[in-house]
Simulated scan of single mutants.
Amino acid sequence: MRARSTIFTLFVEYIYPERRARVRDLITMMEVLGFSEAAVRAALSRSAKRGWVVPERRGRIAYYALSNRVYWQVRQVRRRLYEARTSWDGRFLLVLPEGPKERGERERFRREMALLGYGSLQSGVYLGAGVDLAATQELLAFYGLSATLFRAEHLGPKEEVLRAFSLKEASAHYQTLFSSVPPVLEDPLLAFRTLTRLVHEMRKLLFLDPLLPPELLPPGFPGPSARERFLTLRETLYRQAEPFLKRLSLSPLTPGGITFRG
């Protein structure tokens, strides 16, 4: 876990729907995860230079707030991790964007399309099942891209479609997802560390697992059962981490139906 990426995970899991957090709270959480105060401040400073976060001060208290663009990314991660999936109508969304032309930006766009649940049929041709059209249009607007979009049915075997997605790689990651979960989690700090690492790994898995409708999944794919286990374990870990979370100046949270007040 790298510092900047871990800070993003903290915003996803503990700070949302707020978009700002006290620097002191971020340092406290990151220190529990094994990062020094200097490393946290350096990561926040680098993130600010990239425009990902914005430093703020209210009286004598220092904050960092997510930029509009990164806050949008947090919403997409939360939506895909925690919102119930709607039924699928059997049609795919096909997106043919005009660009990006620069290689680095093209790769960033590809990764963000993967975050939304898209696979790549071939270079510049994106395919999604049960994906969010509004989020897709917002992402295209962020990049200033025009695109041709189709809703269509696939007439061949599902194996042709599955080649567009990284399901084998996702499956390998799911197999080891819970291997580092300790058998006993009564310590609030250990529960917090375990929960954060699990969320961090699940967040990264969103770039590999498009969360396809059950009708499309290959036999034995571990994604749905792993996600169910993660959500159950998340609720337990929140209860066990509550004494630590209550020490922080976070807004009321309702993870897994449990309310914590900082």
Rank of each mutant, 00 (worst) to 15 (best):
G99P: 06
G99H: 06
P100R: 00
K101R: 14
E102L: 11
R103M: 13
R103K: 13
G104D: 11
G104N: 09
G104A: 15
R106W: 03
E107F: 09
E107A: 14
F109N: 04
R110Q: 08
R110P: 04
R111L: 15
R111T: 06
E112W: 09
M113R: 04
A114M: 06
A114D: 01
L115S: 00
G117Y: 08
Y118I: 04
Y118P: 05
Y118H: 03
G119C: 04
G119D: 09
S120N: 08
L121H: 09
Q122K: 12
Q122P: 01
Q122E: 14
V125I: 06
Y126T: 01
A129V: 02
G130L: 06
G130R: 02
V131G: 01
V131S: 00
V131L: 00
V131T: 13
D132H: 08
D132V: 02
L133Y: 11
L133C: 07
L133N: 01
A134D: 15
A135Y: 02
A135V: 03
T136V: 06
T136Y: 12
E138F: 00
L139K: 11
A141Q: 13
A141W: 06
F142M: 10
F142T: 07
Y143T: 03
Y143N: 05
S146M: 10
A147M: 10
A147R: 05
A147Y: 07
T148H: 14
T148M: 08
L149E: 11
L149K: 00
R151S: 10
A152T: 14
A152N: 00
E153D: 08
E153T: 08
E153R: 13
H154L: 15
H154W: 15
H154E: 14
G156T: 08
G156N: 07
P157Y: 10
P157E: 11
K158M: 03
K158P: 10
E159Q: 13
E159M: 00
E160T: 11
V161G: 03
R163V: 04
F165G: 13
F165D: 13
F165P: 10
F165C: 11
L167V: 13
L167E: 07
L167I: 10
K168D: 15
E169R: 14
S171Q: 15
A172L: 14
H173V: 07
H173E: 15
H173A: 15
H173D: 07
Y174V: 06
F178Y: 09
F178G: 02
F178H: 04
F178S: 00
S179A: 15
S179W: 12
S180P: 01
P183N: 08
L190I: 08
R193A: 14
T194K: 09
T194I: 10
L195D: 09
L195T: 03
L195E: 05
V199R: 12
